[in-house]
Nucleic acid binder design. Structure first.
Lengths: 340, 340
DNA sequence: GTGCCGCCAGAAAACCTATTCCGAAAGTGC
DNA sequence: GCACTTTCGGAATAGGTTTTCTGGCGGCAC
């Protein structure tokens, strides 16, 4: 009872040919009689033969594997991203190694070494936040694409979200809905992402000759609780606010709760726009949230596609490619009620 | 300018020894003079040599790779699970292939074939729901561990959550807090998970001689909206309800919202317990939710550990191993207010 | 002092599995 | 009978690990 997995040698023996012939028959290469080819194929099927991709990789120098290194503790951002990556990679029978660094440089280095040894064809390095980071320490020649967090080496290629554009989308939508006294509650000022979203909003307001309701951006934390507290502050500073753009869906949830407590109708009295399009948060809200979708799945798809380009030797220019966001319309920015 | 990655041959040439000697030197095997070993190690370092793990895998028959096949990429369930898997695997330098089937049997089969060819050492098949599924169609001999969804082959090994136990925990906690009129709002009745949670609750209530508030389990959907609607129904049927155990944190959020609308205080008038301990949902709730944590990270850790056992040839009995849940205490089940 | 045994260090070769290139045998055409 | 094609075997190759082999040397006995 040999439980051994069959090799080309076994197939060759069973078909009565040489190993070279087996390879040619199964890969449709070389000159073979149709009868021979069929015999080999039959033998392979009967034995349940599966070529060893380690041996193939050794031979060809390509492993058809790609790694995704993420700092995101498999958080919610990683999911749509991975989905996009799989979209692009799946077609090519490329398998994905998933490595979580847990924000630890030692772990990252460790993963990089292992991936080097595994001779992955390429690597996607995904950060959680927009920031500049040191290039991944990996064998020269292995293509690397950076996602969201970009490399400090300008010749590296990076794909990222369009946070300024997301802010612009939200702002234009609110203006188009007839809102003019728009406030902004968002995450920590020390991060680039919320600053860019705020910049997008401000640019639109400036062009329209409008000021930010409350006179300032309310920077704080990425939590519902901050949304609740900041909404109080904003309404205290500017009681006539008629729209609030929030830096995340979680913040928006908090904001909506405060508005409800104060008997303010959404969207009747105040429209609310979130950011992330984090389905369970945004759709579960009452009313469901209109929100900016940063298009992470597309970001993942673009990253993987470019990586495949680089692997195939097609030139990919260094620099940052920005994927446009889009607006998910739900009820929280619906039409303003008459007389409101 | 040869960009070629260095091989043992290059190291051997630089150190002035044979390739066999290089291997022995770098792996601390065989008999070598200390001076020779040091010379080889130095040469390897200077060249930036990294052994090709494809070649090693070909030789040893072990690849130090494991695959996780999941049907649940969107879900929040995959994240803590993967974390646990990496906890257990990381120590052994085992890399993880992540395969998403998107609930498509064709995709699953496709992944299984590819993993076969890659000669992964083992596979973890993770389902989203407790159900029985056909065994993964993979080369005989490759160890497979099933998570949550179990294999129809009783000799396969499966790790799963303790939903009955979770229900028991929630029920005991509520009884201990002095609640006696406990309702239950949960997900679809056609799934085993909510039925088991309800069974756990019922068993405790039965032992205490209590009935379920509202006279029935409110089965529905896994949404906030169902939580809101079902809470209305429950309160209509049993206005004196003093606690609600919810089948998910999302449902609990909806329930809490309805209670707030009705001016019922949580936990003052009614205590609420969720299920999942999905941090942003449970902690963001006002008040923060006491909730059953199904311990998915531990489930992942156990699955990976058992898989490593099987890979190492240590016997693992078939059957289902259940990982105990635990209760995350937050404010939604705090002390009952005096006079309430 | 010389011959033999055994050990040490490292070279050389075999092996893991699949692919590819080269060449040989057999068959065809004229 | 010669050139040419078709068909397939055999060997080289990829990059390591492992086993076997060899040369040199020390120790011991006579």
């Amino acid at each position: 009872m040999s439980q051994r997995v069959p090799t080309v040698r076994d197939v060759a023996a069973r078909a009565g040919v040489s190993v070279g012939t087996v390879s040619k028959a199964l890969n449709n290469r070389g000159q073979l009689r149709e009868e021979t080819r069929a015999r080999v194929v039959a033998a392979a099927r009967e034995l349940g033969f599966r070529p060893n991709s380690l041996a193939q990789g050794l031979q060809s120098g390509r492993t058809y594997t790609v790694a995704v290194i993420t700092t995101d503790r498999f958080g919610r951002f990683g999911n749509p991203l991975m989905l996009g990556v799989e979209d692009a990679l799946g077609a090519d029978r490329v398998s994905v190694f998933l490595c979580d660094t847990r924000d630890d440089p030692i772990r990252e280095h460790h993963h990089a070494e292992t991936l080097d040894e595994r001779r992955v064809d390429g690597i996607i390095v995904a950060g959680r936040r927009k920031q500049t980071r040191a290039p991944l320490a990996v064998a020269s020649g292995v293509p690397v694409v950076y996602v969201i967090a970009q490399s400090s080496d300008p010749s590296d290629f990076c794909v990222t979200t369009d946070d300024v554009g997301g802010g612009v989308l939200a702002a234009r939508h609110l203006l188009a809905s007839g809102r003019t006294r728009i406030g902004h509650i968002t995450g920590p000022e020390r991060f680039a992402d919320p600053r860019e979203r705020a910049a997008g909003l401000s640019s639109v307001l400036d062009s329209a000759g409008l000021d930010l309701a409350g006179g300032q951006v309310f920077y704080g934390e990425w939590s519902e609780d901050w949304g609740r507290r900041a909404a109080e502050m904003l309404l205290h500073a500017a009681p006539d606010t008629d729209a609030i753009f929030c830096g995340s869906d979680q913040i928006a949830r908090g904001v909506v709760e405060t508005l409800r407590d104060r008997r303010l109708r959404v969207p009747g009295d105040i429209a609310v726009v979130g950011f992330d399009n984090w389905e369970p948060m945004a759709a579960g809200c009452r009313p469901p949230l209109t929100t900016v979708d940063p298009n992470l799945r597309e970001v993942g798809r673009v990253a993987a596609t470019r990586l495949l380009d680089m692997i195939a030797g097609r030139p990919v220019e260094g620099g940052v490619e920005t994927v446009p966001a889009w607006l998910m319309l739900r009820e929280s920015t619906g039409v303003r009620e008459a007389g409101a």
